[in-house]
Write a protein that binds this DNA or RNA. Structure first.
Length: 417
RNA sequence: GCGGUCGUAGCUCAGUCGGUAGAGCCCUGGAUUGUGAUUCCAGUUGUCGCGAGUUCAAAUCUCGUCGAUCGCCCCA
């Protein structure tokens, strides 16, 4: 038997019910804020991701699904959504219609070792906002994310963590301070962090090794070394969050893994997913559009992991798809044509009806009717077909009555209320 | 890419010291030749993840491999 490839999986009908509501709520809530859906391709030129996400990021260096197409161009399955949104923004000239507010949802691909809440094909719902440079936008994005999560039933146990990563004006100086501090403690760092010293010293801050955590705690933190502009942006953001009474936690050790972030970075975390504690994450990327060849354009965005949302929804998970309202038992060869026509007329009245298509004896079909979860079973046998009637059985009470086929849609409609 | 644990029926699992595989649920038929919980009777379910090795004999021991899971790394 051919099985699915590692790290990907089927979302079966029972679980898909949950996915549909998670997606529908996203459309609804983001719509309340004036965001519209953007659908981008799931594959792009490799170069797009390499430049947007960062040539030296782990995602680009070792996690991308890249392959040559038939003409030899390097194509990649998208590892995240922002790069394509930025590309679309520039390509379609939305720089002239600011602010541009979009959301997207769909599969992303990263070649990683699968784990709880982490798959090679995973799904994100994300939002991006281009244009505004003040902290009002940051605050609204966070409010929107939290409102959405609360709306789908995840308000409990989530923490909004945020930090400022500074900007090109203040980060280099901070980085030097941090590096010289870390040099003095180099002996005490874990081996991994020692090798990170040159490449990306900021990432040492969120190392989980106990020794490194202590060192990180007392290290100089970016938020104490922000330039005036970054500082007032950060202060403004906090004031807006307070104004909305949105609880948050400043995490001076939070460092995002993608290269394009500046100033505001935030994560929404949970303690219930093992090592994968982030359900949503995002931040500002004011330089990305310019780096990609567009004009200077402030922007902010975030993305949520749908698998993680659905996992957290946990026990609310449905394991069976919704039941039909009516189940139709077809008993006898003469009844088939009549039953099928009756079924069509009932569906025409907007009633969900499932016809038994597999035949079998009455007992067998009634079992299937009960199992389907239908509230009412309509039985049409040869006898009923000849009389142009049907037996209508209310499953819960067991009451059964004969109704003419012509009246069936209306009667069912009122009985189902 | 690295480490721990685990892979037996569609599902949940048992299987002793190595002796050629079981239960419950589900499913099918019947008791009831046209009526669903329950009950009773009968029946089907298997590459014991895959491949090699040791052995008279392997679900069981060894090695490899694939997959799941947990942690590292990284991230949604």
């Amino acid at each position: 038997m051919i099985r699915v490839i590692r790290g990907v999986r089927d979302i079966l009908p029972g679980e898909a019910v949950q996915w549909q509501s998670v997606e529908a709520e996203a459309r609804r809530i983001f719509g309340l804020y004036g965001f519209h859906e953007l659908r981008t391709p799931i594959m792009e030129r490799t170069e797009l991701f390499a430049r947007a996400v960062g040539e030296t990021s782990d995602i680009v260096e070792k996690e991308m699904y890249s392959f040559p197409d038939r003409k030899g161009a390097s194509i990649s399955l998208r590892p995240e959504g922002t790069a394509s949104v930025v590309r679309s923004f520039m390509e379609n000239g939305f720089e002239r219609q600011l602010p541009w507010k979009v959301f997207y949802m769909g599969p992303m691909f990263r070649y990683e070792r699968p784990q709880k809440g982490r798959y090679r094909q995973f799904h994100q719902i994300g939002c991006e906002l281009f244009g505004p440079q003040g902290p009002l936008a940051d605050a609204e994005m966070m409010a929107m994310a939290m409102r959405y999560l609360g709306q789908i039933g995840l308000a409990e146990g989530l923490t909004l963590e945020l930090n400022s990563l500074g900007c090109p004006a203040c980060r280099p100086a901070y980085r030097e301070k941090l590096t010289s501090y870390l040099e003095s403690k180099k002996e005490a760092l874990c081996g991994h962090c020692q090798s990170r010293m040159d490449r990306n010293p900021l990432r040492i801050l969120d190392c989980k090794t106990p020794g490194c955590r202590e060192i990180a705690q007392s290290a100089p933190h970016m938020k104490e070394h922000l330039c005036d502009d970054c500082q007032s942006h950060f202060d403004g953001l906090l004031a807006h969050l307070d104004g909305m009474q949105l609880p948050y936690q400043i995490n001076p050790l939070m460092v995002r893994g993608l290269d394009y972030y500046n100033r505001t970075a935030f994560e929404i975390t949970t303690g219930d997913l093992g090592a994968q504690n982030a359900v949503a994450a995002g931040g500002r990327y004011d330089r990305l559009v310019a780096d990609m060849g567009g004009r200077a354009m402030p922007a902010i965005g975030f993305a949520m992991g749908v698998e993680r949302l659905v996992l957290l929804l946990g026990e609310q998970n449905q394991t069976t798809p919704p039941a039909p309202s009516v189940y139709m038992v077809v008993a006898g060869p003469e009844a088939e044509a009549v039953a099928l026509a009756a079924a069509e007329s009932i569906r025409g009245a907007d009633i969900t009806l499932e016809v038994n298509l597999q035949g079998g004896g009455m007992r067998n079909q009634m079992k299937k009717a009960a199992r389907s979860g239908a509230a009412i079973t309509v039985i049409i046998g040869d006898h009923e077909a000849a009389q142009k009637v049907a037996q209508c059985k209310v499953m819960e009470s067991g009451e059964q009555q004969e109704i003419s086929l012509a009246d069936l849609p209306e009667r069912l409609k009122s009985d189902l209320k």
